[in-house]
Nucleic acid binder design. Structure first.
Lengths: 153, 153
DNA sequence: ATTTAATAGTTCAACTATTTAACTATCTAC
DNA sequence: GTAGATAGTTAAATAGTTGAACTATTAAAT
């Protein structure tokens, strides 16, 4: 690829990713309950999908410090959406799981978000969206790799 | 597309977009000066690309309320990175422009981010990245349309 | 011309998210 | 047993965001 085209693609990617993210987040936020924030929802999502997880795991996945996770999960705990359980073999470790209420709320919210995303996905033809997802997955892998390389610096 | 596959694609899109955004943002944040936040940088970026803009425009582009913009631009103003100029024909309107310092800082930072994004983009073959960008653009258009439709509700 | 309605941006208070630094257990390695 | 490392928490400070109210200012209606 000629250098000039790379420059254009890079610029386009930066602008698109910014805008897609902003609008995407705003649309998702409208599907949330008034007392659940976007970060909180994604946290419930991760816990739901993994049945249980630790603060360190969340900190890694969300690319933030452990103390940020503590603040968010304390709010979720205060709302009765998650519970904390100490690991019996390593008392430093706390497992986070969803309460019944947390489970219900998550599922209701996620259903609304699914509907939203579905309305968007179905505007693409099948071949195009499959190719897009495949490249998105590759992008994800490249970003993960880049993140790991920078951690080693 | 069969319903089941739609469900899979939707779920995959939600997970990927969350993760790509989180990691992408973390990587970008590492290219910033220690006293410039991600939001502030993107604001400088928008002002730079448009030479001048209003708070309302920024609020629309960033999908936030005008008061959020006021808070951010006041911080940028305090740092000497932008200036405010009242429109002479409509005294309610304030135009935001970059100062020389703001300009310099933006360009330096953006160069580092470009390098980062370039290192990622060049991991794709030309055909794939061109197709990806094309679909990303379409996604952007669909999201914009969806946002507009929801504003009318 | 006057009044009412709408708009741009600001202010304020409250809340959420994030960081850093320090801390309290707890575990691991020697 | 001691030193070092780790998981998660605490506290303070900063940034971002919302909703409500506000101050001009402009536009529309009367």
């Amino acid at each position: 690829m000629p250098d000039q085209r790379i420059e254009e693609v890079v610029n386009k990617y930066i602008s698109l990713s910014f805008s897609v993210n902003k609008i995407g987040e705003a649309l998702v936020k409208e599907q949330l309950d008034c007392d659940l924030t976007s970060e909180q929802h994604y946290m419930l999502r991760y816990i739901y999908q993994n049945h249980s997880c630790t603060s360190s795991e969340l900190a890694d996945v969300f690319s933030v410090k452990k103390s940020a996770i503590t603040a968010i999960i304390t709010r979720l705990w205060t709302k009765g959406l998650i519970k904390r359980t100490r690991d019996e073999n390593d008392r430093r470790v706390v497992y986070l799981t969803l309460t019944d209420h947390g489970n219900e709320l998550y599922l209701e919210t996620e259903a609304r978000i699914h509907k939203l995303v579905e309305s968007i996905i179905t505007k693409f033809d099948q071949n195009e969206i499959e190719m897009f997802i495949k490249s998105y997955e590759k992008l994800h892998d490249v970003l993960l790799e880049t993140k790991k390389n920078q951690l080693e610096d």
